[in-house]
């Protein structure tokens, strides 16, 4: 087992404890963390956790339907950024911007983005969307990329992963089609 896969194992167990029990439709069900048994090809373990947090903020889970994370939006993205994916050209942008985004909440909240609750994550992304983090982006680790433009891109990719065909790695169990009443 290489280091990466080992990391994934550890992550999975930790993640499992956090999310395994979900209140769904009146019963407790044992949920699977999005990444269980799934090693990614482009995104690192840490990047995947950040991406999961983004996906669940952009499309939050509710009592009826899972959110972006469990719909496997991160798997969709990893697949598209990879060698055979359609979004290879965005790979570097994700590698640079995901960690920068995770740290960008430290100033205001004193915590990493992944450690915030949904309300705080929403408030923080609203700021980024509005362009409040665009000046000084370079010093804050965003490289040549604009935080607000990155947010627009991630939002769009989350919608693709959640609402697009499962053949691309997301929309697990056709969740969005069921949610819209299409199946």
């Amino acid at each position: 087992m290489d280091n990466r896969a080992e990391g994934m194992e550890r992550f999975s167990r930790r993640q499992f404890l956090k999310v395994s029990a979900i209140w769904a439709g009146g019963t407790w069900v044992i949920g699977m963390p999005a990444l269980q048994g799934k090693s990614f090809t482009v995104l690192s373990e840490q990047e995947a956790v950040i991406m999961d947090a983004l996906a669940d903020t952009i499309i939050p889970p509710d009592e009826e339907y899972v959110g972006g994370r469990e719909a496997m939006v991160t798997r969709f993205l990893d697949q598209q950024l990879g060698r055979y994916g359609y979004l290879q050209r965005e790979k570097e942008r994700y590698h640079t911007c995901l960690p920068a985004l995770n740290r960008s909440s430290l100033n205001r909240f004193g915590e990493l983005f992944t450690e915030l609750d949904e309300e705080a994550r929403t408030a923080h992304l609203t700021e980024i969307e509005a362009g409040l983090h665009d000046s000084g982006a370079l010093e804050n680790g965003w490289g040549e990329y604009s935080p607000s433009a990155f947010f627009r891109l991630v939002r769009d990719h989350c919608m693709m992963g959640f609402y697009g065909s499962p053949q691309h790695g997301g929309n697990k169990h056709f969740v969005s089609f069921r949610m819209l009443g299409l199946t």
């Binding site: 499309i59 509710d62 339907y65 929403t122 989350c158 819209l180």
Partner: peptide
């Protein structure tokens, strides 16, 4: 479904987050 996630909503509607998902569920049909 994907097209509906971005267009077809009143001006000023939330384009992501809980309110967006609720809009999708409530209004698609």
């Amino acid at each position: 479904p994907y097209a509906y996630s971005s267009g077809f909503r009143p001006p000023g509607s939330k384009s992501w987050g809980r309110a967006h998902k609720e809009f999708q569920k409530r209004n698609y049909m």
